[in-house]
Design a protein around this nucleic acid. Structure first.
Length: 615
RNA sequence: GCGGAUGUAGCUCAACUGGAUAGAGCAUCGGUCUACGAAACCGAAGGUUGCAGGUUCGAGUCCUGCCAUCCGCGCCA
């Protein structure tokens, strides 16, 4: 790549790194010049912030140092203006050619996204379906955040393994099987509703547990309450005993029970795949890596800990202790049974040792922070913090907040039950469709006269896109209030706003009637402020994807795309494309439109959001 | 009790990891179309960044102490 087609930030980094060494000496080799986009167009295109922190460290007034750097830096061929301002900011306005050449470079080069060269796969643990339980809003977040992170990493060329850590084994499943048998449900005709009922019956039956009594006793609540719970407990105990027997049979591979178990999974997963499909998330059976997958690995995992004195017995159970905290982690119960921590450890071992992954990402709600801290630390103690070829493994829990209702409490239905994912998506699709339909009734709308099928499909993309965008567009750890009216709005920082900008560009390009070859190699003219601002924003795309990837924060892409859409709309307002005053300007602006369209479409794809060409 | 997260305009959220006058969008008020798609654009108004200290040229961002809300804390997952 010649110097002329390099990215402006790359150019400025090189020039100012050299200037820093020239002015301050070779010991300042590799110091970051801190190049940033300018905060405001009045300051130019880019600012260099290094003079201030450096000046302080070496005892030179920052402004003087900034002057010296500017003197030493060879900017004549690329900059229009260079100024030192304020306490020591260096403001730079680049020449039109540097910008247009850089756009040329990004246009033919993956839109400026630089590939990451790492042969290790990345594992992303997402979705987390419980068999026999319908998906709810928590699964929504885990699934679409995880899917977006996967897309971002894949976009950089990394191999990503999406793993759905199914809750498909153990006592809870045995209890459901037991309940279904008692109620003589025909498993061949098993419906999701029946399964749901059985799950809740099983839960209710076993949950009048000891903990309830402990709490009641602790708080010195009346003895009648204790007696009540004890009575419940008696029933629960007998149910648990029955379930435990069922579990033993299941573990021994009882043929009929295994067959029932498969039916249970099929019934649950059919609905799961339907929702995933609607969400535009690509996952199928091959992504299932649940508890049953690891069930035979658990004794070995525990063995690794005991053999290395990493686990000790405590009140009959096996616990791992950590130096920096009181709280131990249980890996085996006093009755010999294993816990979810054990399964998570088995998964880490498999992902590192067998799949050779060097990055493990867990998209699980924020309440499990402590759990993952423990599991990661324990895995490192066991030696699974390094791949077999010696790379350090990065284990990251991506904690996300809860979805709240209008009352700011976790989202529930009016009757107090969890909102199912299916019902939520159904509402999103219905809202998207009605919005699209309503606007298509306007004779001047490009969607006017489209077939019902086409409108329905666009409406689906709008509704689902709205929900996904709302979920991904703010800092993940924060709770957010689910408000369909705000999400589906076409104004403001929403999915539909971005989709609209995209559709509008498609329409211009379509109506211009010029094929891509007609403008692909034409000169980009960036004379108008709006053209220049749009160009600068387009040039940031690669860096934004890189930052979303290293921080694992999809909302950075959302903010960027929103700003891009705003700048495009400003450009659209001020710069006629089809009615441009000359042929050269027409072609140049078509190129800007096309580049913007490609970045919008690529960015929305990283979020897993469809970009219809008409809406 | 211990540990963790969050707190920014009336509301919903940003702030490129310590940089210039803390930015957007809703909502409110006022301007732009016989439309390159007005589902858009431009403008006005709105702030002691929970509180109090500290670190330095410079703090929403780092440190200390409080306050409020939420979450977690050994044989559930």
């Amino acid at each position: 790549m010649s110097q002329e087609t390099a990215h402006p930030v790359t150019l400025l980094n090189e020039i100012f790194s050299r200037a820093i060494v020239d002015v301050l000496g070779p010991e300042h080799e590799g110091v970051d010049p801190v190049i940033r986009p300018s905060k405001s167009p009045e300051f130019g295109d880019f600012q260099v912030n290094a003079a201030m922190s450096l000046g302080k460290r070496i005892g030179t007034p920052p402004r003087d140092l900034a002057e010296k750097l500017v003197e030493s830096a060879d900017l004549a061929s690329i900059a229009e203006t260079v100024d030192v301002a304020g306490p020591g900011f260096i403001n730079i306005r680049l020449s039109e050619t540097v910008l247009s050449d850089a756009l040329d470079g990004m246009s033919g080069n993956g839109l400026g996204v630089t590939p990451v060269d790492d042969p290790h796969p990345v594992v992303i643990d997402l979705c987390g379906v419980n068999v026999a339980k319908q998906m709810h809003v928590g699964h929504l977040r885990s699934t679409i955040i995880g899917d977006s992170l996967a897309r971002i990493l894949e976009r950089q060329g990394r191999e990503v393994l999406r793993e759905n850590h199914l809750g498909d084994w153990g006592l809870p499943i045995a209890m459901v099987l037991q309940t279904l048998r008692e109620e003589e449900v025909d498993l061949e005709q098993l419906s999701l509703d029946q399964l749901d009922t059985a799950y809740r019956a099983a839960q209710a039956g076993s949950k009048g547990d000891d903990r309830g009594i402990a709490v009641v006793e602790e708080r010195r609540i009346g003895p009648h309450r204790v007696a009540e719970l004890e009575e419940q407990n008696a029933g629960a105990e007998s149910r648990r005993a029955a379930a435990a027997e069922t579990l033993v049979l299941l573990q021994q591979g009882d043929e009929r029970l295994i067959q029932d178990w498969h039916r249970l999974i099929d019934c649950t997963m059919r609905a799961v795949y339907e929702s995933l499909d609607l969400l535009n998330v690509e996952m199928d059976e091959s992504n299932n890596r649940g508890e049953s997958f690891y069930r035979n690995h658990l004794p070995e995992v525990v063995e690794t800990f005991t053999a290395n004195n990493l686990a000790v017995e405590d009140e009959g159970a096996l616990v791992v202790r950590f130096e920096d905290r009181e709280r131990p982690m249980l890996i085996q119960k006093s009755d010999g049974g294993f816990l979810y921590a054990t399964t998570d450890l088995a998964a880490i071992r498999n992902r590192v040792v067998n799949e050779n992954a060097d990055r493990l990402i867990y998209v699980v709600d924020a309440r499990q922070r402590d759990h993952f801290k423990d599991v990661f630390d324990a895995a490192k103690l066991a030696g699974w913090g390094t791949t077999t070829d010696g790379h350090e493994v990065e284990m990251r829990h991506i904690p996300f907040g809860s979805v709240l209702g209008p009352d700011k409490k976790p989202l529930k239905t009016r009757s107090g039950e969890n909102v199912t994912l299916a019902s939520l998506l159904e509402e999103a699709v219905a809202r998207g469709r009605s919005e699209v339909l309503r606007r298509s009734e306007d004779e001047r709308s490009p969607t006017h006269g489209m077939s019902a099928d086409e409108l329905a499909s666009i409406g689906r993309a709008v509704g689902i896109g709205a929900v996904k965008y709302a979920d991904l567009s703010s800092d993940l750890v924060r709770d957010y209030v689910f408000d369909m009216d705000r999400m589906i709005a076409f104004e403001g920082n929403t999915g539909p706003y971005l989709q609209y900008a995209h559709a509008r560009i498609c329409s211009i390009l379509d109506k211009a009637g010029v094929e891509e070859e007609g403008f692909a190699s034409k000169d980009l003219l960036l004379r108008e402020p709006a053209e220049r601002l749009l160009a600068l924003q387009l040039l940031r795309y690669g860096e934004v994807v890189a930052s979303a990837s290293s921080n694992l924060e999809p909302h950075r892409i959302c903010t960027y795309l929103y700003e891009l859409s705003e700048l495009f709309n400003g450009f659209y307002q001020q710069c006629p494309v089809r009615k441009a005053e000359s042929e050269d300007l027409l072609l140049s602006r078509l190129r800007l439109c096309d580049l913007t369209r490609r970045v919008l479409s690529d960015g929305l794809d990283l979020l897993g959001i469809a970009a219809p060409s008409t809406m």
